[in-house]
Design a protein around this nucleic acid. Structure first.
Lengths: 366, 366
DNA sequence: CTGTTAGCGCTTTCAA
DNA sequence: TTGAAAGCGCTAACAG
């Protein structure tokens, strides 16, 4: 394996000259530059990033922490991070925490030891304030995918869950539904969506029925259980707001099993717009999160702060367009259905003619 | 940021002693060991992996190259790699190539520069023999997810596509179908599956009809196009073998659009058993690839070779159990349908009572 | 425009 | 059981 010294020796120059050429620094004649380039290529010399990072105190690595890449919520977001990272010469460590605090802590430690330039945390356990402090002290730029900013240096990317829940419910109300249930978690994003649901009902003068508010977790099985509880009710709701798309899929599968038709008997709306949402039958009406853009923005925030460490934390709120599909409207326009020849671009969901800007609001911390 | 020197100074010992404690080397008294541990914890000292790797010439990083993590084929496999990596103290770089040769080459260069211990390549462009040579020369252990072994040091993990195609077709034949179409790519895995299809037909004395063999790519849109071509035929086939699950989903969606019922009018079988297969309506009958196990085995092969670099390459062939669901049999047993309380474990597909061993055959290279 | 010197933080090797 | 010295491969800082 060739080293910079080998290249320098063959070229008859000092290692510093080779280093300058490799890093495209000015002050090397075009002649030597070309000669060194040739030798680098001949020797198949690959600069050792461990050595250069150690010396320069700069790495081109970042870490992404997610509960599990097998959960369809994350691949798009990870891709958003990774695409931009790659374009900028960074490479990313993928960490699956399974929501296990001990795994999370192990990973954070590992990433600190790898001296990553930045870290994107999108759930899967609870990152402690002490850990955040330590990361910031290490000079690692942290981006969180949640809406609680806990440090003036931290960037958060998120949507307005209250607004999303409100829009979802309003869509159902606009379709004439009066008895609307919600199946969503109480914690994290779920509570905001629930509050939006309550606000939308209240706006139309409808009193919430606690029987129609079911606590769940963000997975399909939980959606199935929730739907079964609603099915057991003396009077079924005519529409259901699901806390996310996986819950919605569970709800629909349970409804179908009982012979209910969606949307004719019960309309169902999801949240997130994960890729399956468009593929499912019926295709899911949902409140979209611009997952790819959120990931890319997270990476951009890290890059910005690598260049200018003085930048403050910001809270980035993304728009949540309503995507109308068949699970609420039997005759929904078909544009979301994949057409031959046109690959469905799940990265840029559109409702109508214009695509709303993904970023809605930016608030500087402190 | 504390360094090993800081720890040594505070402890009043040499850096070597601290190093020995950190790396759990023998020959340090229990007393100093405990004292140093305490100081390490007090200072929140995180050993610099860049420095230790530079000096020891060993990293605990590996790279995974896939076309795109947003393709549902890969998350399970990546998880298989990552779980084992994490358990062994490794951290993984995720690289999305999009099947773009230039991205692939850039990534391979980046991983070489990061001095990864190993690299798992699961498609997305064509890795050149020169690159393989270079990687092997660098001492990077390479595992390929394909069935062409090109180097005596290389490990491959794969299924027997011919066998899978044969089993898929035989399943349809056993159900009484006589006119069976196939929609699959000609290249890579597709051709093996096609040959298996032909072999199965021939075994039953059925002559293949070229009209029923449609070339596709591994995506849903291609499946839709293929199905539409079959629908335009004077006499529709009664069953379709799809090259993979995404094609199968496209096929079914096109069939449904034309008012055909699956499986009553047309039975459809997929390949891979990606997570959506169980969720789709109708749930997909498919030939499963043990994706998680294949990923984990790839990582295990890397670990084995880190410990013993003399190990030869091997070709690991995995079993492909047939998973019978509703897309071929209207009354299929329902065990694959997610039940409340039991999270569906997509990692361990089972057909009947016994789970066949994931690894089928191991052939040492050369 | 190019070379020299020092040292990043660690492990290795040898000595005590 | 512990310490001292050397050096992994590179970049920073300065000198020429």
């Amino acid at each position: 394996v060739a080293t910079i010294t080998d290249v320098a020796r063959v070229a008859g120059v000092s290692v510093q000259t080779v280093s300058a050429v490799i890093n495209d620094k000015a002050g090397i004649s075009e002649a030597t530059r070309a000669r060194i380039r040739q030798i680098v290529s001949d020797l198949d010399y690959q600069p050792n990033h461990l050595a250069s990072s150690l010396r320069s105190r700069r790495t081109h690595t970042i870490g992404i922490l997610v509960p599990s890449i097998t959960n369809p919520y994350w691949p798009e977001m990870v891709r958003g991070v990774e695409d931009l990272a790659h374009r900028e010469g960074y490479v990313v460590f993928l960490c699956n925490t399974d929501g296990d605090p001990s795994k999370l802590h192990t990973y954070i430690r590992a990433l600190r030891r790898q001296r990553v330039a930045g870290l994107f945390f999108s759930g899967g356990g609870e990152i402690t304030d002490a850990e955040i402090e330590a990361l910031v002290a290490d000079g690692i730029h942290v981006v969180l995918n949640d809406n609680r900013s806990r440090h003036e240096k931290i960037v958060t990317v998120h949507v307005d869950d209250h607004r999303g829940g409100f829009d979802a419910t309003t869509h159902l109300l606009d379709l004439g539904h009066q008895r609307i249930a919600i199946i969503a978690p109480l914690e994290t994003a779920g509570s905001g969506r629930r509050e939006g649901y309550l606000a939308a009902l209240s706006d139309r003068g409808i009193t919430a029925d606690s029987e129609l508010m079911i606590t769940a977790t963000f997975d399909m099985e939980s959606g199935q259980r929730g739907a079964r509880r609603l099915l057991a009710l003396p009077s079924m709701p005519s529409a259901i707001v699901a806390g996310n798309d996986m819950i919605a899929i569970g709800v629909i599968s349970a409804l179908k099993q009982q012979g209910k038709r969606v949307p004719q008997d019960v309309a169902v709306i999801g949240f997130d717009n994960i890729p399956i949402a468009a593929l499912y039958d019926p295709a899911l009406t949902t409140i979209a999160q611009p997952l790819y853009e959120m990931g890319a923005s997270a990476m951009q925030a890290i890059l910005d702060r690598v260049r200018n460490p003085a930048l403050p934390g910001v809270s980035l709120t993304f728009a949540t367009p309503l995507i109308v599909r068949r699970s609420t409207v039997a005759t929904a326009n078909n544009e979301e259905e994949p057409q031959p020849g046109a690959a469905p671009d799940t990265r840029t969901p559109v409702t109508g003619v214009e695509r709303p800007p993904a970023l809605c609001e930016e608030v500087v911390m402190k």
